[in-house]
């Protein structure tokens, strides 16, 4: 018994040092040396390519707010915030920081999903409201991705189809011809990794950067 305790204490100290700190410090060191960009969060001048952003508040002179850019998946803040918070106030603030991983627009929150069940009346209502939201922006048939939230609330990607349904909205607000937008989307589409892993997707930030260049 005493032996066990003595051995436990000694090993805890050594193991914590080796498998906690040395492991992590060595890992950080190597990562910072070899993959500095990735290790620091893939930060670009307009934000991280891995963290989705709220595009709904984008100012579009002469057109409805947010109609001149491509949107990512909805989340619990921005125009979508009212949707989630309307029926369940308790869950509104802490979870689903959405596009705002930690602190964004002065709203504190952490990553996470809505966690609404498949037969949730709230989810049904939210989805209905999102459909109306999209219609108000000129997107007649929003795809499932555009009316559902992601697992992290930070999804930086959309599918090509998600972008294509937004073409009429973006074309109307920016004046860029739909065919040019089609081409743009095609260019921005990353095919599946190694050709079979996952499905083709588009990084919303990069898509909008390309759109801005086009304008």
């Amino acid at each position: 018994m005493v032996t066990h305790i003595r051995r436990s204490i000694i090993s805890i100290l050594i193991i914590t040092a080796v498998f906690g700190f040395i492991y992590m410090l060595a890992g950080t060191g190597i990562s910072q040396l070899a993959f500095r960009h990735q290790a620091n969060g893939s930060i670009t001048p307009n934000g991280s390519t891995l963290i989705g952003q709220d595009w709904s508040a984008t100012k579009c002179p002469g057109h409805p707010q947010g109609s001149c850019v491509f949107h990512g998946r909805p989340d619990a803040t921005g125009p979508y915030a009212a949707v989630v918070c309307s029926s369940n106030a308790r869950n509104c603030t802490p979870s689903s920081g959405g596009d705002n991983p930690l602190v964004a627009n002065n709203v504190s929150g952490s990553s996470g999903a809505t966690n609404l069940g498949p037969r949730s009346q709230t989810l049904l209502n939210n989805t209905r409201q999102l459909v109306s939201y999209w219609r108000s922006l000129g997107v007649e048939h929003p795809t499932p991705d555009l009316v559902t939230t992601s697992g992290s609330g930070l999804d930086p990607d959309i599918t090509p189809q998600d972008a294509i349904v937004q073409i009429p909205m973006v074309a109307a607000a920016t004046g860029v011809a739909p065919s040019e937008l089609q081409t743009l989307i095609r260019e921005q589409t990353h095919s599946a990794q190694f050709g079979f892993l996952g499905s083709p997707d588009i990084n919303v930030l990069q898509l909008n950067e390309a759109l801005a260049r086009l304008k």
Binding site: Q38, G41, D54, A57, T58
Partner: peptide, 27 residues
């Protein structure tokens, strides 16, 4: 990490996107 997982002890970073005016603090 090579694929993009974050690995730093530097704490959160605040970024601003000029395209949409969003400011994010990324943990």
């Amino acid at each position: 990490v090579g694929e993009g997982a974050v690995m730093t002890l530097a704490g959160p970073v605040t970024v601003h996107d000029a395209l949409n005016g969003v400011t994010q603090t990324i943990p």
